[in-house]
Computed example of a mutant assay.
Amino acid sequence: MKWFFRITIFLLLIPVQTLLLEKIQIAGVKPDLALILVYCFSWARGEIHGLLWGVALGGLVDLFSIGLLGVNFILKTTTGLAIGILGRSFLNLSLLWNVLIFFFISLLHDFLGTLLVEGMREGGLFLLAQPDMVGRALYNSLFAVGLLFLFSKRSGEKGSFDHAGVLFSAGGNTRSTE
């Protein structure tokens, strides 16, 4: 059943991203479903799953994109690994904190992607920060709220966001290292 679920997500990502989410874009901004899924899987399952989902979904997005090949692969793989590592203890926080962290991860993802594609032009870093980055980060965060909530209810490993406003939790992660 797990493999069927994984293959279904892998096969439906591009059609959902390009067809369905195209219809619900706001002000020309649509969410990055691959980034949302990589974040949620990394948060729920750890760095190995995050790394693998980042490789799979980043590579898939790069395969079907018309941009520079490898940018999504690098960014989503790095995001999956970093969030998986941080998910051991630091991201075992309230839903609000996870959404705020995801907002900044999404901003950083778009900024680094633009930096890799556009490079340093004569205008400097300030011209790389485009207004739609904040809109996409907000939109991504709205989608991530629902998925993080579902992951927290489905996964007994992370609990139910009981740490409310605590920035650092002493509990850490209860996952086994098997």
Rank of each mutant, 00 (worst) to 15 (best):
L150E: 00
K23N: 13
L13M: 09
N98H: 08
L93S: 13
G59I: 10
L12C: 14
E47F: 11
F41Y: 14
S176T: 09
G46N: 05
G54C: 07
K153P: 03
S169A: 11
L142K: 01
R154Q: 15
M133S: 07
G159F: 00
L20K: 01
V61N: 02
G59S: 12
T174G: 07
N92C: 08
Q25V: 00
G87W: 12
G135D: 03
V71I: 15
S94Y: 00
F149L: 09
F10Y: 12
V16M: 11
A164M: 09
Y139K: 05
G84A: 12
I105Q: 03
I105L: 14
F90M: 03
L11P: 07
V61K: 09
A137E: 00
L51G: 08
L75A: 05
F111C: 05
R45A: 07
Q130H: 05
L19I: 08
L21H: 04
R175A: 12
L167C: 01
N173K: 12
V71W: 13
L96G: 11
G123R: 00
R154F: 15
A129K: 05
I48E: 11
P31V: 00
F5S: 07
G59E: 08
F149G: 01
G159H: 00
I36A: 12
F64V: 09
R121S: 13
F10L: 10
L81K: 10
F41W: 12
G67D: 06
V145H: 05
R6Y: 09
T18E: 14
L81E: 04
L33Q: 07
T114F: 01
L112C: 07
S160F: 09
K23A: 10
F90T: 00
E178Q: 11
G165T: 01
A170M: 04
S94V: 04
T77Y: 06
L75F: 09
G28S: 13
I83Y: 03
W53P: 03
M133I: 04
V145Q: 03
L115I: 10
L57K: 06
G123C: 00
K153V: 12
L69E: 06
G146W: 07
K158T: 11
S155Y: 07
F5W: 11
I85L: 15
A129I: 14
H109Y: 14
G119L: 13
F104C: 11
I14W: 14
K158R: 12
I85G: 01
G87P: 05
F5I: 09
F64W: 15
G156A: 10
E22Q: 15
F104N: 10
E47H: 12
L127V: 13
L86K: 02
W97Q: 13
T77M: 14
G135N: 04
E22A: 15
G84R: 08
F41M: 10
N140K: 04
A144S: 14
T18L: 15
I36S: 12
T77V: 02
L116C: 03
R88V: 14
G58A: 07
L107V: 04
I48G: 10
S141F: 03
T79H: 09
L37G: 01
G70A: 06
S42C: 06
T77I: 01
R154A: 15
T18V: 14
F143P: 03
L115M: 14
V55P: 02
E118N: 11
G165L: 10
S89Q: 06
I26A: 04
N72H: 15
F64K: 03
S106K: 06
L142P: 04
A27F: 14
T174R: 02
D62T: 12
R136C: 06
L12E: 10
P131M: 01
S94W: 04
A164N: 06
E22D: 15
I14D: 07
